[in-house]
Design a protein around this nucleic acid. Sequence first.
DNA 1: TCTGGGGTCCTAGGACCC
DNA 2: TCTGGGGTCCTAGGACCC
Length: 441
Amino acid sequence: MDNKGAFLRPCTDLLALCDCNNFFVSCERLFRPDLEGRPVVVLSSNDGVVISRSNEVKALGVKMGEPYFKVRSFLEMHGTTVFSSNFKLYEEISSRVMASLRRAVPSMEVYSIDEAFLETPPEGKSAPEEWARGLRGTILRETGIPLSIGMAPTKTAAKLAAERAKKHPGAGGAFALLPGKPWDDFLRDIPVGDIWGIGRRWSDFLKKRGVSTALRLRDSSDDWLDRRMGVRGLRTAWELRGIRCYPIERLEKPQKSIQSSRSFSSPVRDRESLLEAVTEYAMIAGRRLRSQNSLAGSLAVSIRTNRFKESFFRAEQEIIFQTPTDSDIRLIRAAADALFSIYREGHDYEKASVWLGRLSCAGMVQLGLFGDEGEEDRGAALSRAADRLNGEAGRRLLAPAALLGEKAWRPRRDRDSGLTLEDLGKLPVIAEEPPPRQNLQ
DNA sequence: TCTGGGGTCCTAGGACCC
DNA sequence: TCTGGGGTCCTAGGACCC
């Protein structure tokens, strides 16, 4: 292959990655300032695994994704405060953080619930780190959420810079890799597996071939990268050379698929309980579908037993809609049909999922040959009315009778802080940075 | 006893067509 | 003996991310 990189010049512009520190833990601490400086974790749905750790817990060696039952007594021993996750709350806090950021920059891309790529404003270009520290202070003041900012010409380098900002006590929460300056000393210390886009499999592959650091990856030949890793490997290496391959996506794109799934609090054997669960998941997915103004062309249901047991059983069925839909009635009916076609008696089911696929934009529908458009209109209108009512009430008022009441399949959340969006409204505006303390990483 | 949920992109290989 | 070749579309599965 030719040296494709020869056509591209290193980028001289700076972008900034803002990454909220220990985001879910930070959210819970907003309401519990007494937990500042103390070990805290947030658990996944069903209190299954650890998904957010305070610095104190990271220092204890507890890993991301660790099953809770394995570390429970260890965490207790160290006086850790444990929370079930409260995603509604985290999403709301996230949108406040994003709104604060948006006021500070010309444009940005919300990358995840706790990260955003920012275009650097003119005032940030002359003294990037100083500007970033100021921004960090602003966000902390306005939302109470601490974050780290990495600046670099490319996203991949900015991710590494943010990691350094987070871990380096002297960085003040910001670190910049400037264009035109040598990054060699910095990249030499980065294990190849810490690079954005290099997961466990690529990391093992690269290390076996002597490419163990970010510097080595950057300096690998384009030909080798292309042959052994394909376009993803090439782009990653170029980004480490300062050549921008992933631009800031300023426009929010609608999702291409929507999934709703939960693990059950205890195994489920009977078809009726599974039907209740997939009905609920279809409605959750339907609400998200309508909120982004899309129609689903297909719906798939999958059910499975405990994947860590030898008797593991899994089944999946996809239903293609004749005409794309956003009507709960049709989604639920399809979910039931799919479920009944795959359900087998005698298994301890642990989880069910509903996927919506082949999404299209509402308003660009092609009418089906054997249209049931009349029913379609009624079903969709009904679903939107329910969205509106439920949205105004802030909780679910309209739901099938079968979903009312306590259900054994609903996920466990024994450590729920019980906070609601109303509590968020009562929160005093936080003005001060927490007192400095020893960095425990 | 107990092991999350929600996404995206890339690639290889088969089907199909001319 | 010899059994085309190339393009496009689609899908499943892998790998990665937070």
